[in-house]
Design a binder for these strands. Sequence first.
DNA 1: TCTGGGGTCCTAGGACCC
DNA 2: TCTGGGGTCCTAGGACCC
Length: 420
Amino acid sequence: MYALVDANNFYVSCEKVFKPALEGKAVIVLSNNDGCIISRSNEAKALGLKMAEPAFNKKQYLKENNVHVFSSNYALYGDMSNRIIRVLETFTPRIEVYSIDESFLDLTGFKYDNLEKLGSEIKRTVKQYIGIDVSVGISKTKALAKIANKLAKTNELYEGICVLNTKREIDCGLRNTLISDVWGIGKQYRKFLQANNILNANDFISTNDNWIRKYITVVGLRLKKELQGTSCIPLETMLPAKKAIATTRGFGKIITNVIYLKEAVSTYATRCSEKLRAQNSVANILTVFIHTDPFSKDKYEYLSKTIHLDVSTNSQIELAKFALKGLKMIFIDGLRYKKAGVIVDGLESANNIQTGLYSNCDFKAQKQISEASFRINQKYGRDTLKLAIQGDGKEWKLKQEMLSGKYTTQWNDIIKVTST
DNA sequence: TCTGGGGTCCTAGGACCC
DNA sequence: TCTGGGGTCCTAGGACCC
């Protein structure tokens, strides 16, 4: 059996932990640049605020309805997420961290014979230790656990814990799950399946294998087996190394001057370098892109350049150099740029780098510079030592006008308790 | 008029997830 | 003025090998 533990309204819940006065209020968290609504308290949902809705055209409405608005604070959410995972690990070592607010637990050989009791024990412990409400779905496969979790969240009768174990429970669960709520069925497949009169999860498993294979590929077939109780999506307890790493950001305001694009692009290359190092990888393909505002009346321009590196690297200096080289090739003067990004690809372990036969680069010196810079920044904070070209970011940094404190990761932001 | 049979690797595009 | 930022997997098609 698998349990899927999923935090309720996760980002909003994190904010509430440190501002208890928000309890019972409409609260939302916005995406980067304070763009879209990406987390909503139940009260905010009741007001009709939609997931991924742009916030700018709701400003008046948010004000009128006294909605509390936050910029996203990933330092806080990431740390809270780690704390929840540590609590879950006290229940079983076999755990897959599926996303920032979701984990699958393998319940094989568990001492509890009563799964509902186990579910409520997990829920109660996370709430007590971390202050966050979670929902627990338990069933025979990961796809079924997903369905159980969805039911636990949406049907109050379950009180946050839903177990689908017997055939009767599973049948009933599948019948009550819309096809759009099935894990792996997105917008396109939903439309297609509905057009073919497949409206819920039970309709889906009643559909012919070959038909599913043909139209929804082997992925769809695997999903069908999972929903029938045959596990074929294994639990991944080890975090697999990433195959691609990206750092892309929209700017706080429109950029026209190439100097600011250089600052941004070299900074994003630096972030990629940090992420590569964190998983002991090097990359041999780098893509840099810049584009204008897709929502503007002006013609949308997307410019990108992919560069194949002779020698794989995770060096900040090397990656920034190639990113800037690519930028130079694609930059067109006179456009109004809204976003840029650097993507590194062709990742392999840093332990076995293939050096170039004719390369005259001093890799040893490169490595020593990287190591030194990495240690300095780790000790004194990000970008203490940085490339001059990175600049100060003042012109293009994210808009974050309603950012809460980094309560759990910054000494200065720890909440103060006073008695009166 | 007629032109084999088996592979691999890479890339772009489209679907999905959070 | 203002619309996020990451990732994954699968398939088809093209280029190439013998």
